[in-house]
Design a protein around this nucleic acid. Sequence first.
DNA 1: CGGGCAATCTAGTCAGTGTCAAGTTGTGGA
DNA 2: TCCACAACTTGACACTGACTAGATTGCCCG
Lengths: 194, 194
Amino acid sequence: MNPAKTGDSARPYHHGDLRRAILAAALDVITVDGPSALSLRDLARRAGVSHAAPAHHFKDRTGLLTAIAAEGYELLAGALAEAEDLRDAGVRYVRFAREHPAYFQVMFTPGLLRDNDLELTTARTLAGERLRAAVTAVPAEGRGPDARLAGVAAWSLAHGFATLLLSHNLDGPVGDQDPEEVFRALTGMLFRSR
Amino acid sequence: MNPAKTGDSARPYHHGDLRRAILAAALDVITVDGPSALSLRDLARRAGVSHAAPAHHFKDRTGLLTAIAAEGYELLAGALAEAEDLRDAGVRYVRFAREHPAYFQVMFTPGLLRDNDLELTTARTLAGERLRAAVTAVPAEGRGPDARLAGVAAWSLAHGFATLLLSHNLDGPVGDQDPEEVFRALTGMLFRSR
DNA sequence: CGGGCAATCTAGTCAGTGTCAAGTTGTGGA
DNA sequence: TCCACAACTTGACACTGACTAGATTGCCCG
């Protein structure tokens, strides 16, 4: 029998899509308070479900974070796939970080994830390939002789900018300008001579 | 002054330098298992001290992390102060991240720190100034008209490279090469035309 | 020299957490 | 129809951070 609860009629024994609900709640929490504030019991409470229910869908806390990261890499791969050129890919990378800070944070915080998870690694390599594709699309005389090095450079630049942005380290320099525009100007400055 | 501390039979009531011992143990734990694995009780156990002793030196868990971050910014500022030019500053930034991954991780993981802490903010602004100094040391015709933008670009590049390195996202592209050399080559590629 | 005092550490408690094991309820497939 | 399995609940355990009160110690000042 269900204990008291708020709102609608009696909740069915089966939630319907508990997995989705937990994920959504988790993203909310992470966005506001960061991954370390995540509590399976709290998520269960938000979904109106018993304290051990989440463990049935994501074995652990780590399992939950891993699932989030995998989904994040899929979203990122999707965004990068539509990029017109390398600079656009960079802009989309930054935009992804700003629009989905929770995903981004989980994806790139080491020690939070089960690195050998299959779903995670495949999503991750897919996103990596999309990035490499954007780099190799640049004509060789524009990007220098070493495509691999150019890829690292582009990724570092976009990733560093996005990370510093999220950790509020660019609040001063960027101010109230549109971060995407700043990033565009930044790449324009670095590559102006080509 | 201090009673003997290591190896002897009965532990003295006063540890001697518990604060230092806790910090050192914390850095070990973070290096191996990340900040989320940090437990005050575990640190107390490692230092051979009661479970509540750490709280006397660092009010909370957050206080401990904040102290670590502040010390990290001081170390970073010290490293940047000795830089010869902008590229060298970047190399030192990357080297700092590799030599002190625990500090680096804590410093740039939002939500872990007490951002309004005085010691933290002063150390942070000091490091920021050292970075700006390295940028403005570059002659204007080499860095373009906008020093602020050039600073963001340089910081993003170094920070992104360091972050991706620590999260093992460059294990493939960089391979077994010396990361500092790769970074040097990378900046050489980006700035070859000046 | 000796008493007091503040820094340091101990010990106990409380609410909250992840995880495990075993039970209960609903549902789809043979 | 019925039954095996998936989804969820319930209860328990060991752990955590935070808080409190009290014990111990070394040092300063008279």
